[in-house]
Design a binder for these strands. Structure first.
Lengths: 341, 341
DNA sequence: ATCCGATTTGCATACGCATGCAACAAATTT
DNA sequence: AAATTTGTTGCATGCGTATGCAAATCGGAT
């Protein structure tokens, strides 16, 4: 147990193509060719090599392969915590489908703002082939990627820069939702938006205002809070009028905060939903569709968006000349039990 | 635009230490030393190198570094879909804390059983330093890792093999929960377990039976369904007695299915909870704590478990001789609105 | 000035694999 | 049977970095 060699504690940690070659009395390059699709090698020998490799537990070292090819087969995914409950699903789907294409997802979680630069450094260092990022990167970070020729696709965030993106059209969705509320007779609408400066929040507000433009007697109040369930109480406080009343319709930017509003209204505030107040949201997150919530609102077409993201990522890797592309997807209306519309 | 060189479309994709060296008229090894903590280099020169590197956008290539060191700084995380809603949180926390220690999380999603072998192959190929896996790996897969000396830590699954693991003590938790139910007067308990063969399901059942052992007049019915919300209906059908009655207490293995039961009971079946039926669960997932659910049950100490997982992973990487360690954590009781206990 | 020790730098090589080129064997043609 | 083609294999090299060893530089003490 004492005098072990450093390399790999167990038996077959550091098995190389040379080991396989030696076992078969052939050259290392031949072994390499056996594992290179399309390379020149006789089927019989390849089978023998595969068998020998299997026996000694050899697997090609993708790090070394990547070093030569200048391609790591790694795709970096940058994500922040506590933004959207749908993102875990995105992550799962994305990584699964990318795996089918030979890519592996490398995670770059962002804690606070300070860790952004750190994450970017690590992304560089790992030589990922492309990056998918949710809204946590700012313009400076984002343009750095593109300047250095690293394919970047933003998810649910569009910049005024030549950056590819895949996003849900929150403005159109919000306009649609607001219009439905207006047509149903609502004239007093409260918007529970994301934190000040949030892209999605701004888009939603833009859409709502567009819808309200044609209705002179309609009024809009806006509350900016973060995306937590607990923030709903604060939002409702902000939306309360001088006379103590609340808007008859709440448009929430997010499932979590919508659920919070719903619970506040029905619980603490003793309102009925959708009787007294209507609540609509952007979501589609599973639990928000459970019987006790059944939130009415707009659903992001995550499936299509995931596909689009993959297409853009892989496309840019294959052809670095392929240009910037912004794909926008209309959300679909989702019936529920929380709005009289 | 036409005659671009292959290597990296943009400007600084493939910048090497040699480029930095050339710019400063020094040797490549010196640049390397500047980026190697503890290496012999004068502070003045190091500063100049850092400045030059910054200017040309150089970052050390971790793939190459890993090739030499026999260490990739990658930690593979194997996870299946649709198991536990808490796992996204685990993933986020884990990747964040590992990043602080210089490790990056590489994702290996498992779709169907067939993809397990495929995932294992890729794990090998990427030369990850260690692997954390949720319960999707079987004994064969698991022992393959250890035989080849790749540190593996299982999350919430214990094998009768020398494999390290971090897990919540579901048996003890279930025993505690069941005892609470019994002491509150419940004698007819229904267990909504995971799919047949599930580790967690078996553990929970074991715990419940241990609790019931001392109560001769208590009876237990068990329903095995998968972890989906929709499965609750099926579970309740399975638990229905010949006379049409239902158990007075439901012990669910998972937040999702517990929420499903709750909604079925209150909705379709017209029961009150916790009046007619008590529902308890294993969980702690955010939305299951929202006002409309407030599920009573046991919460896994994810924070401690995450820390333990990191400790075991990093420990095994640093010292490959460190032995197998199984860390078990007691879940903590979580008050709620769904059980009369 | 001279020498010694300490510090800093360069040179050469290796990590594991892929690939161009040359060598070779086998299959086909003339 | 010789010439040509086609198909396989080995040799040598490079990807970007780290590191042992030797060379070089520097500071100070003699």
């Amino acid at each position: 147990m004492a005098g072990r060699k450093a390399r790999g504690a167990g038996s077959g940690a550091g098995i190389t193509s040379r080991d396989v070659a030696k076992a078969l009395n052939i050259s290392q390059s031949t072994v390499s060719r056996a594992f290179t699709p399309g390379a020149s090698i006789s089927p019989a020998l390849r089978d023998r090599i595969f068998a020998a490799a299997e026996k000694v537990g050899y697997r090609p070292n993708l790090l070394a392969r990547g070093l030569i090819a200048g391609k790591s087969n790694l795709i970096g995914v940058v994500l922040a915590r506590q933004t959207n409950l749908l993102y875990p699903e995105l992550l799962y789907e994305l990584s699964g489908r990318l795996a089918e294409r030979g890519y592996q997802v490398l995670l770059f979680p962002i804690g606070d703002a300070a860790s952004v630069q750190d994450a970017i450094n690590r992304i560089w260092s790992f030589r990922v082939d492309a990056v998918l990022a949710t809204g946590v990167l700012d313009e400076a970070a984002v343009s750095a990627f593109e300047q250095h020729g690293l394919p970047l696709v933003m998810f649910n965030r569009v910049f005024d820069l030549p950056i590819s993106s895949v996003s849900c059209d929150f403005a159109a969705g919000a306009r649609d939702l607001a219009t439905r509320l207006l047509k149903a007779g609502h004239r007093d609408i409260g918007l529970v938006g994301g934190p000040e400066g949030s892209f999605v929040g701004a888009e939603v507000e833009r859409g709502v205002r567009a819808a309200l433009a044609g209705w002179a007697d309609a009024r809009l109040s806006v509350a900016h809070v973060d995306y937590r369930y607990e923030s709903a109480a604060e939002a409702l406080k902000l939306l309360r009028r001088e006379d103590g009343g609340l808007p008859g319709a709440l448009l929430c930017v997010n499932d979590t905060v919508a659920a919070g509003c719903l619970d506040q209204l029905r619980g603490t505030l003793g309102r009925t939903v959708p009787g007294d107040v209507s609540v609509v949201t952007f979501g589609g997150f599973g639990p928000a569709r459970w019987q006790s919530y059944r939130l009415t609102g707009m659903q992001q077409p995550m499936d299509q968006m995931t596909d689009a993201a993959i297409e853009l990522l892989v496309g840019r890797i294959a052809d670095s000349q392929s240009g910037v592309e912004r794909r926008s997807f209309l959300p679909v209306f989702m019936e529920g039990d929380t709005a009289a519309i």
